[in-house]
Nucleic acid binder design. Structure first.
Length: 264
DNA sequence: ACCTATGTTATCGC
DNA sequence: GGCGATAACATAGG
């Protein structure tokens, strides 16, 4: 479920076990995930290098690579991507699209079932964010700047939350969760949100994302009173017992409790 | 066969 | 130029 919390968990996994190990070989079983770099260039760029540190920007994971020139490995997970670190024995996991083999025998596998994610190289994170038109990371966004972003935006609140060029990190599922917990309808027009609504929205957003990270982005560990486990037409709202409804907003499935979120 | 699915992008219309 | 809608990308599962 690669939204911000999921990517943060992947980042921590890599930071805990994938740094400072010299890379022996890079394999690219399916180069359709590569973005702006050939399999050969990726392999040459990484050979003998080590991953030094990680950074997350929205749903992107950026990994600094050692060497004379600044170089970052960039990973995006699409809807079905993940990282697997293993001992390198046996066949790589299914859907492994890029594999870094370390000299010590272990390996890092980038998996993507639907090939919707991308792997690439960048000179630095700021240039990468600019090139991909990413807004500020949503957890690195102060209240004043958040209010400013919303003040300059019109339209539906859910579309704004999910617009990665406005703020980076919130996806379809967590947008619904945040709006549910904030008591705001996804189709609400931003013009109809007052200052208290906007401040509450940011506060809830941070709480939801941080809680999800604390729970390892594991749906089983998320609070039972969240909407997330009830993403189904007709399910019981954990707060009021009313019916959860399915809508479409911005072409995406959207779940809402009309009673708790104002009917729209 | 049909529908659904956590993401992004290009394109069209207003 | 911004925003909403739509299709496309590719694959699996119900």
């Amino acid at each position: 479920m690669p939204e911000l919390p999921d990517v943060e968990i992947q980042r921590r996994r890599l930071a805990a076990g994938g740094l400072k190990r010299p890379i022996a070989h890079t394999h690219v079983p399916d180069d359709r995930v590569l973005d702006g770099v050939s399999a050969r260039k990726l392999a040459v760029s990484l050979k003998g290098r080590r991953l030094l540190r990680t950074r997350r920007h929205g749903k992107h994971l950026l990994v600094a690579v050692d060497g004379d020139d600044p170089l970052w490995l960039t990973l995006h997970f699409g809807m079905t991507g993940e990282l697997v670190l293993d001992d390198g024995r046996g066949e790589p996991p299914r859907y492994a699209r890029v594999i870094l083999e370390w000299r010590d025998g272990g390996r890092l596998c980038y998996l993507s079932r639907r090939l919707l994610g991308h792997v690439g190289l960048a000179g630095d994170p700021e240039a990468f964010a600019r090139a991909h038109d990413l807004g500020p990371d949503v957890l690195d966004l102060g209240r004043r700047r958040f209010l400013k972003l919303l003040a300059d935006r019109r339209g539906m609140v859910k579309s704004a939350l999910m617009d990665q060029s406005l703020l980076a990190g919130v996806g379809n599922v967590y947008a619904d969760e945040i709006l549910y917990q904030a008591g705001i309808h996804p189709r609400a027009d931003l013009d109809d949100l007052d200052d208290d609504d906007r401040k509450r929205l940011r506060r809830v957003m941070r709480r939801v994302l941080r809680t999800a990270i604390d729970r390892k982005a594991d749906p089983e560990r998320l609070p039972r009173r969240w909407l997330l486990p009830r993403r189904e037409e007709g399910a019981a709202c954990p707060r009021c017992g009313g019916r959860v409804r399915r809508l479409e907003v911005g072409g995406r499935a959207t779940y809402v409790c009309p009673a708790c979120q104002g009917g729209g």
